[in-house]
Measured scan of single mutants.
Amino acid sequence: ATNIVGKVKWYNSTKNFGFIEQDNGGKDVFVHKSAVDAAGLHSLEEGQDVIFDLEEKQGKAYAVNLRIK
């Protein structure tokens, strides 16, 4: 899925991951530091509006192509 809109539920910059809540009511999506770095960001803030693509690997969904809304 592409261009999914959501809000950062939480992001832990020490542990380098967090979760994004989808605006469409879907399951929360894992986001890793690598996606944050690829977006040219240092971190994510709770409540921040983002747009992302959804990829699945080994049955787990995660956010890629992250951008600030």
Rank of each mutant, 00 (worst) to 15 (best):
N65D: 05
K9F: 02
A61N: 13
D23C: 06
L41E: 10
E55L: 12
G25D: 12
D28T: 05
Q22K: 13
L54I: 09
A61Q: 07
E56V: 13
Q58I: 12
G59N: 15
E21Y: 15
K7G: 02
V36Q: 02
V31Y: 05
T14M: 09
D23S: 10
K69M: 05
K69Q: 04
A1L: 13
T2V: 15
G18W: 02
Y62M: 07
K27F: 14
N3F: 06
I4R: 08
A63M: 02
S43P: 12
L41H: 08
V64I: 10
A35G: 04
D23Y: 12
I51H: 08
T14Q: 10
D49N: 12
A61F: 15
E56I: 08
S43L: 11
K57R: 12
K15V: 13
E21F: 07
G59I: 06
Q22M: 15
Q58M: 11
H42W: 10
A61C: 04
R67W: 07
D37A: 10
I4E: 15
Y62R: 13
F19C: 03
G40E: 11
A63L: 03
D23A: 14
V5H: 15
L54S: 06
W10D: 02
Q48N: 06
L44S: 01
G40I: 03
Y62V: 06
A39M: 07
G47P: 02
T14N: 14
Q48Y: 08
N3K: 06
K9L: 13
E45P: 15
A1G: 11
I20R: 00
H42L: 14
V50H: 01
L54H: 08
F30W: 05
N12Y: 10
L44E: 01
A1S: 09
N65T: 05
V5I: 08
D53P: 00
G6C: 01
S43Y: 12
K9A: 06
E45C: 06
K60C: 04
G40K: 12
V64A: 09
G40H: 11
N3D: 13
S43Q: 12
N3R: 05
Q22F: 12
R67G: 05
I51W: 15
I68C: 05
E21D: 14
N24D: 07
S43H: 12
N65F: 15
F52I: 04
G47V: 03
H32P: 04
H42E: 11
H42Q: 13
K9E: 01
D37Q: 10
D37N: 09
V8S: 01
I51E: 14
K7T: 06
I20T: 01
Y11T: 02
D23P: 12
E56L: 15
G40N: 12
D28V: 05
H42F: 08
D49A: 15
G59E: 07
H32G: 13
V64P: 00
Q22I: 08
A63V: 10
I20C: 02
A63S: 05
V50P: 00
Q48F: 08
G47K: 15
I51P: 00
I51A: 09
Q58F: 08
W10Y: 08
N24F: 12
D49M: 09
N24Y: 15
F17I: 05
K15W: 14
I4L: 09
